[in-house]
Amino acid sequence: MGFKLLSKLLVYLTASIMAIASPLAFSVDSSGEYPTVSEIPVGEVRLYQIADGVWSHIATQSFDGAVYPSNGLIVRDGDELLLIDTAWGAKNTAALLAEIEKQIGLPVTRAVSTHFHDDRVGGVDVLRAAGVATYASPSTRRLAEVEGNEIPTHSLEGLSSSGDAVRFGPVELFYPGAAHSTDNLIVYVPSASVLYGGCAIYELSRTSAGNVADADLAEWPTSIERIQQHYPEAQFVIPGHGLPGGLDLLKHTTNVVKAHTNRSVVE
């Protein structure tokens, strides 16, 4: 069995187990497998329904001669939608809004960016022009300005110390501490036991640490421990890039980060 097929099978099995364990909360999309990078042309966006009122959005972007996937989250909030992270750029984010209108038909009224990198804030200006209120932590807003990236308009308070959590509509926002970046936030959907790890969490097929220019490698494993301790009931975990899975993604990420750190020390 090929690795790609095995990865998709694991996603399907995880979703099936969740649907059985929580039949009222989960209505997993039966329309197909989780979209992969090879299936999404740059400039297009796919939506994948995880649970009743919960979707991931998947886009792709060219970077350094390669094409990478990027995940975000959409959560229903009454007759409105909360968006977590842009679709990595203005063109993708405009396509995301169009796809949401086509498939869901509810307005996106608020959006949260989970850290300051372009795959999370690139497209904020498109959201703002569409009347979406954009939010991020003060740290993310400051770092985005320093980096020359787009800056969300509103500040999220109460997320300055490791372990801080605040309720934001249908989700809980959690600051686990520094990891992929010093400002990275985690998003949890309690009604569906869905954990969105953003770039602080890796997919299972990833074996290298990737972009760690703004990471705190020493603190990252401790931050992941905080996530595990705060959300032990999480059933569906979405990484910032690639295929979702279960809580095993947290341990896998820790292993990859520690291996990278150990290699760096040896070198």
Rank of each mutant, 00 (worst) to 15 (best):
M1D: 01
L5E: 11
L6I: 07
S7R: 07
S7T: 07
S7N: 08
Y12W: 13
L13W: 09
S16D: 07
I17Q: 05
M18S: 13
A21T: 14
S22V: 13
P23Q: 14
S27H: 12
D29W: 11
D29L: 07
S31K: 09
S31M: 09
T36V: 13
V37E: 15
E39R: 11
P41W: 08
G43L: 06
L47W: 02
I50E: 03
D52F: 10
D52C: 04
V54E: 01
V54G: 02
S56K: 07
A59K: 05
A59S: 15
T60Q: 14
T60P: 04
Q61G: 04
Q61F: 08
G65N: 10
A66N: 13
Y68G: 05
P69E: 15
N71P: 00
N71H: 01
V75C: 01
V75Q: 03
D77E: 09
D77L: 03
L82T: 08
L82V: 09
I84D: 00
D85L: 00
D85W: 00
D85A: 01
W88S: 00
G89E: 00
A90V: 08
A90D: 14
L97S: 03
I100C: 02
I100H: 01
E101M: 09
G105A: 11
R110C: 06
A111F: 06
S113Q: 04
S113I: 03
H117S: 00
V121Y: 03
G123D: 05
G123I: 03
D125G: 09
V126L: 07
R128L: 09
A130T: 09
A133M: 14
T134V: 05
T134G: 01
Y135H: 08
Y135M: 04
S137F: 01
S139I: 13
L143K: 07
I151A: 07
H154R: 11
S155C: 06
L156C: 03
E157K: 10
G158P: 07
L159N: 01
S160C: 05
G163K: 07
R167L: 11
E172K: 04
L173A: 03
Y175I: 01
P176I: 03
G177K: 03
A179M: 06
A179L: 02
H180I: 01
H180R: 04
S181W: 03
S181Q: 02
L185R: 03
V187K: 01
V187H: 02
Y188F: 11
V189N: 01
V189G: 01
S193L: 14
G198T: 07
G198P: 02
A200Y: 05
I201D: 05
Y202F: 14
E203R: 00
L204M: 13
S205A: 10
T207W: 07
A209L: 06
A209P: 12
D214L: 06
L217Q: 06
P221L: 11
T222E: 11
S223I: 00
P232R: 10
E233M: 11
A234T: 07
A234L: 06
A234H: 02
V237C: 03
H241F: 01
P244E: 02
P244N: 04
L249P: 02
L250C: 02
L250F: 08
H252S: 04
T254I: 11
T254D: 15
V256N: 02
V256K: 02
V257L: 15
H260D: 11
H260A: 13
H260M: 05
T261R: 12
T261I: 12
N262H: 10
V265A: 12
E267G: 06
